[in-house]
């Protein structure tokens, strides 16, 4: 199984939609790699710069509620993947986006609003390490580390381990 974690980029807003994550005009691309430069290009968030190093180095996104709402485009997951982001931590997700993450063998982690608040209040650059089997995400920053536990059901864990739904379904159905 691949490793989950990395440097955290924090996006302090709810309802970040798929058009913000990857605008529709790039959906004419047939290769996933071609999406790379356009990550979060249309995000409406004060002070956010899609060209920042913080975003380029990120492996984990931490954000608020209803992340990934809007269209069904899996491009919104692929654009994260090709940019080296394999975990999104949020208070909640839109259904299709969440399912697309697991279908691609990536992690959508839901934490309570209070936990998300704590991560937003931590100082300095943050990074995260995820233990999928135990359901623990460890967030480290200037003031030390905090553990947060999350739940995945067996199916979701199997998908992550199999590397996604296609591999899983091909074997089973």
């Amino acid at each position: 199984m691949k490793e989950f974690g990395g440097r955290i980029v924090r996006l302090d807003r709810s309802d970040i939609n798929t058009d913000e994550i990857i605008p529709a005009k790039y959906l004419t691309e047939i290769s996933r790699e071609a999406l790379k430069p356009y990550l979060l290009e249309d995000l409406k968030l004060d002070g956010f710069d899609p060209a920042s190093d913080e975003l380029k180095q990120a492996g984990v996104i931490v954000t608020r509620a209803n992340f990934g709402c809007g269209s069904s485009r899996e491009h919104a997951v692929w654009v994260l993947e090709v940019n080296g982001i394999n975990v999104v931590v949020a208070e909640s997700f839109a259904r299709i986006f969440r399912q697309n993450m697991f279908n691609c063998g990536m992690l959508a982690v839901e934490l309570a609003a209070a936990d998300i608040d704590r991560i937003f209040s931590m100082k300095g650059d943050l990074s995260a390490a995820v233990d999928v089997d135990r359901g623990i995400i460890t967030v480290s920053g200037a003031d030390g580390s905090l553990d947060f536990s999350f739940s995945l059901n067996d199916f979701e864990r199997d998908l992550v381990k199999a590397g996604g739904w296609l591999a899983y379904a091909d074997k089973k159905y």
């Binding site: 269209s71 069904s72 485009r73 899996e74 997951v77 299709i96 399912q99 697309n100 279908n103 691609c104 996604g164 739904w165 296609l166 379904a169 091909d170 159905y173």
Partner: peptide, 15 residues
Amino acid sequence: GVGTTDLEVGILKGV
């Protein structure tokens, strides 16, 4: 509505 991977599995397996 589903994403591409769900669509692939739908096309391939009908589930």
